[in-house]
């Protein structure tokens, strides 16, 4: 993915953004470490290693920012963010259905259908049906063979 077209301003924006993100992460680590403030009788306390990692992150962040200003960087390839968004939505729908007691089988089937939709298929009903069959099989494998209880909704209670 290195088909590079050099950026006009001679800056590597992603590297600069990543650099600032590292500085922010270091800040979070440091703040949390300071808030621990525990007294440890022997050896070193729980705050020392987070501080060391935070210092490392600061150094890496600064280096990244510096390299971002120095080099042109490479523009990543063109990408479709639409389908990525659909994938994310599919996953969120799954999470919501599990959270609100929709049950394992319907939630998985919906994830299956939305994902294959994101990849360009348009036969939503067929995919839903495939998803239901697959996830029912998985559900039975888990609950009957392994006695692991997966999230139950109305449908799963019918399966027993």
């Amino acid at each position: 993915m290195s088909q590079s077209t050099s950026a006009p301003k001679g800056r590597d924006k992603p590297a600069i953004v990543v650099g600032f993100l590292m500085l922010a992460l270091a800040g979070i680590l440091w703040a949390d470490a300071v808030s621990l403030g525990s007294v440890v009788a022997y050896g070193i306390g729980p705050a020392v290693v987070p501080k060391i990692i935070a210092a490392g992150l600061v150094l890496l962040g600064l280096l990244s920012i510096l390299s971002g200003f120095r080099s042109a960087g490479t523009e990543p390839e063109e990408a479709d963010f639409g389908p990525v968004g659909i994938l994310v939505i599919g996953f969120l729908v799954l999470t919501a259905m599990i959270g609100f007691g929709g049950g394992f089988v319907p939630a998985m089937a919906v994830l299956f259908a939305i994902t294959s939709f994101a990849f360009g298929r348009r036969a939503v009903l067929v995919d839903l049906a495939i998803g239901v069959v697959l996830s029912t099989l998985i559900y039975l494998l888990f609950s009957k063979l392994l006695t692991l209880s997966l999230p139950q909704g109305p449908l799963e209670r019918l399966l027993g």
Binding site: L87, F91, L111, A113, T115, S116, G120, I138
Partner: peptide
């Protein structure tokens, strides 16, 4: 591909 990745995501979540 669509089914393959749909299956992968199912697996991952499961």
């Amino acid at each position: 591909t669509p089914w393959l990745y749909a299956g992968i995501l199912m697996f991952a979540a499961m």
